[in-house]
Amino acid sequence: MEKNKNKKSFLERMGESQVWKSIIRSGVPRSRRQRMQAVLGSVFLHLHPARLPKHAVKVGYTWCMGGLSFFLFVVLTITGILLMFYYRPTVEYAYTDIIDMAEQVPLGIMRELHRWGAHAMVLTVWLHMLRVFMTGSYKPPREFNWGVGVLLMTLTMFLSFTGYLLPWDQLAIWAITVGTNMARAHPFIGHEGPGASLLAIGDINLVHAGSDVRFALLGGRFVGEASLLRFYVLHCIGVPFIVMILMAVHFWRIRKDGGISGPL
């Protein structure tokens, strides 16, 4: 009897070990105080406040869509890094590498996870935006964060779009041909946009097929080798880099704007 009373559970003993304590200083989170400290003391969890109003943890209020968008971003980063081990962004290899990826690599659903994850992320971001609108959460003081969100949504779609070119199949190059030809029509800086012909010195056009925005995007006058490389770099590093910065701002501002919105 006496013995039993003093016997500590496995969890308790683990919580007192030096290793555990070095990682989570507050011990096993059991008391209210420890639980709050567990959140505040973790670099990941302290994105959250320690306490929340009740409605903020309800799925019916946030639909979890912001969180799932972030989660999908992480999933896409991981699967994307793995895909990069096998994929070579050249006109010669891109298509066959994609086929090999499904056929020669064990458990070949990595590409599926990445592609469907990307589609799903566009959807979750849209749903998140809808939720924020429906709850009127863009109203002061959250105007700025709504703006950051709109940029994130645009970049999410752009990320998805740049990835579309990489398999170098019929779907890919025609979507990119049409998409980038819109840049050709950009006022002033696209060579078939209004105003482009005004930017000329004498007879020499400054904005032509070899010097407009479309060229900058494609690295050439046609969708080709250079375009594939540019889209690859944008897709793997360029855009995710900006998205990560904006996400950091987005999360920071949620806290600074007083946490999740709610009725007063």
């Binding site: 060229f215 900058a216 050439g220 006058r221």
Partner: peptide, 12 residues
């Protein structure tokens, strides 16, 4: 940066 996007030689 912008000039860097426009190479001098094109392989087309």
């Amino acid at each position: 940066i912008i000039r860097f996007l426009f190479p001098n030689v094109l392989f087309e």
